[in-house]
Simulated assay, not measured.
Amino acid sequence: MSRSIERVIRTYLDHLTVERGLAANTLASYRRDLGRYAQALAARGITDLARVTPRDVADHLAALREGDADHPALATASAARGVSAVRGLHRFAVRERLAETDPTRDVRPPTPPRRLPKALDVTQVTALLGVPDDSALGLRDRALLEFLYGTGARISEAVGAVIDDLDLDASAAILHGKGGKTRAVPIGSYAVAAIGAYLTRSRPHLVAAGRGSHAVFLNARGGPLSRQSAWTILRRAAERAGLPADGPHGVSPHTLRHSYATHLLDGGADVRVVQELLGHASVTTTQVYTLVTVDRLREVYATAHPRARG
């Protein structure tokens, strides 16, 4: 069977269409990426897949990142997609015995930069936590928001907490995290006060409306508060505090968790302590927050140091 690059690409795209059932937009992206690859190889005088070397593939990756006279430079994510399409093509060719070796085996797509977590500053957090009123549901909402920010809990950990998980006298709580793992975390005085007010002045009225749930946070019918309802509480509070509530930059339950970690590190907490508080299995996961604090340090340095700017 011919191993011409154009023919193998057509066969591979047919495979993706029939066997893999890829969406039309995805197929169009693959067709565009592989068409550019075929053109790049043809410019080198390569029309047979068997003649492609790892160097050819690596040079193609560099061209994607740097751009040329006919193509603008691609962002990391787009370049990674292009390389993935090329790798898929060569793997398919080896599997179908259209080629003996895979020149992309040791070529890795570029790693997208780690997205820094969104974090609110202390003023924004204060505005958010000050939104709920002193009604029964308002006391619950304030307790929930203070709990999320005061413990760094995931939304699932907050709505999954039961009364026995709280020890307000010791200013501590037990959180039930991923994989069935539990951890003890301290609760700050503001959160303790808000939760205490909710438990004594609000929750008994909510319990009376339901079936005696043991969940800490209850809905208006006395049942356990759902994740979706907790999200709605936060979104409405964000709107009233003048913070973005929707879209990619909107405040989410995870925003409060990010803010908790960032503010701890800004205050001098050790990254391994923050790792334990967040329930991360690896400190590597927590270290992304140090990137945020380094950016903050740069800002302070740039504005405060006499030799920071020319």
Rank of each mutant, 00 (worst) to 15 (best):
S2E: 08
S4L: 13
I9K: 07
D14P: 02
D14C: 09
T17F: 11
L22M: 11
T26H: 12
T26N: 12
S29Y: 07
Q39F: 00
A40Y: 10
L41D: 00
A42Y: 04
R44C: 04
R44A: 06
L49Q: 04
P54W: 08
D56P: 05
D56R: 01
D59N: 09
R65S: 14
G67D: 08
H71N: 11
A73L: 13
S78I: 04
A80M: 09
A80F: 03
A85L: 05
G88T: 05
L89W: 12
L89A: 05
F92Y: 09
R95W: 13
P103G: 01
T104N: 02
R105C: 05
R105S: 11
T111Q: 13
P112S: 06
P112V: 07
P113A: 14
A119E: 01
L120M: 04
A127Q: 11
A127C: 11
V131G: 00
P132Q: 07
L139Q: 02
D141P: 05
R142F: 01
A143C: 11
Y149C: 03
T151G: 08
A153L: 15
S156G: 09
A158P: 12
V159Y: 01
G160P: 06
I163N: 10
D164S: 15
L166M: 08
S171F: 15
A173R: 10
T182K: 04
R183A: 10
V185T: 13
G188F: 02
Y190A: 15
A191L: 01
A194Y: 00
A197G: 06
L199A: 03
T200A: 12
R203P: 02
L206Y: 06
G210E: 02
G210N: 03
G212L: 09
S213M: 04
R221W: 10
G222M: 08
G223M: 03
R227K: 12
Q228H: 09
I233V: 11
A238V: 01
E239V: 14
E239Y: 03
R240A: 14
L243V: 06
D246C: 05
P248T: 06
T262D: 08
H263R: 03
L264Q: 13
D266M: 10
G268R: 08
A269E: 14
V271D: 01
V274I: 11
Y289T: 08
Y289A: 10
L291E: 14
D295C: 02
R298Y: 02
V300L: 10
A304D: 06
P306G: 05
R309A: 04
G310F: 00
